[in-house]
Design a binder for these strands. Structure first.
Lengths: 141, 141
DNA sequence: GCTTGAACCTCTACCTGCTGTAGCTTGTAA
DNA sequence: TTACAAGCTACAGCAGGTAGAGGTTCAAGC
């Protein structure tokens, strides 16, 4: 049986985070010693590793909760899982697109910032120039 | 003079968000009517648009606070601003790299998930397989 | 068997960047 | 004048944790 600190080290999770996952019902309440300390088994280790891996892949805790529910009831269709993973992929692709646009504008800003003092700096000018933004939300785009 | 709702519409910001920015000191306290309602001028509009634009570019409120401080003291070197923008670019690039790795793994997961029931599903298997994660943090990577 | 101190416990508050609600007041147009 | 949209303050809540206070337990060394 593992103490919470050992479980934390093995999964690369903070102790408080493990207790937090228990609190929100992602991890089951573990057994306790006579003195009240938590003790974990291998199944807890697996479940926590699953959660951490999914978090690293960008799944929200709610999506992970769904995945865990599905895997706790293994009779159901693979399509459910597929749907969750697809939704996740769409979100990731949208985030990438947004960040790439952002990177482009930041690079342009930096290319144009070659003056010496703040009053000449293109970065601030670019940020101050909000015509595009105004157009964006006024046209509902 | 603009009421808060007008300012909100013109900049695509929620009314509460404007009051929040004032509360944390990003926007100065505006003038008030006799009845206590906030009234804004064009400089407030500019400042808020600057903030919103920078937020859209992914700058944190702390970074924006730095940028505003710099532009309030225009004698300083452009290098400070350049440094902030560069830091932002690095962060964006790191996020993109991470998301691209993620997209790759999600696509692989989905390609391999062609079975019918949860117990056969590769998605859960992939998520359950934490050998890579364990290796990662045990080697300090 | 005893002592020490690292690790555990609960509880609470805090973080970012907002958003929403309750209950009340003000401004403005008809 | 009256109706009601829009304003006001104050506080709670979201995700996904993190940090600290103040107290208890476990386990290794002597």
């Amino acid at each position: 049986m593992l103490a919470i600190g050992t479980l934390a080290k093995r999964t690369g999770t903070k102790v408080q985070t493990i207790r937090y996952y228990e609190q929100i019902g992602l991890l089951p309440e573990p057994g306790r010693t006579e003195g009240g300390q938590r003790r974990y088994g291998d199944d807890d280790l697996d479940r926590l590793a699953f959660i951490r891996h999914a978090r690293q892949l960008g799944f929200t805790l709610e999506a992970i909760r769904e995945l865990l529910d599905l895997s706790d009831n293994p009779g159901r269709s693979c399509a459910d899982i597929d749907r969750i993973a697809h939704r996740q992929l769409k979100e990731v692709e949208a985030r990438i697109a947004r960040l790439e646009a952002l990177r482009k504008e930041l690079r342009r800003m930096l290319r144009e910032c070659s003056r010496d003092t703040v009053s000449d700096c293109r970065v601030l000018e670019v940020l101050r120039d909000h015509s595009a933004c105004l157009a964006d939300h006024e046209t509902g785009a």
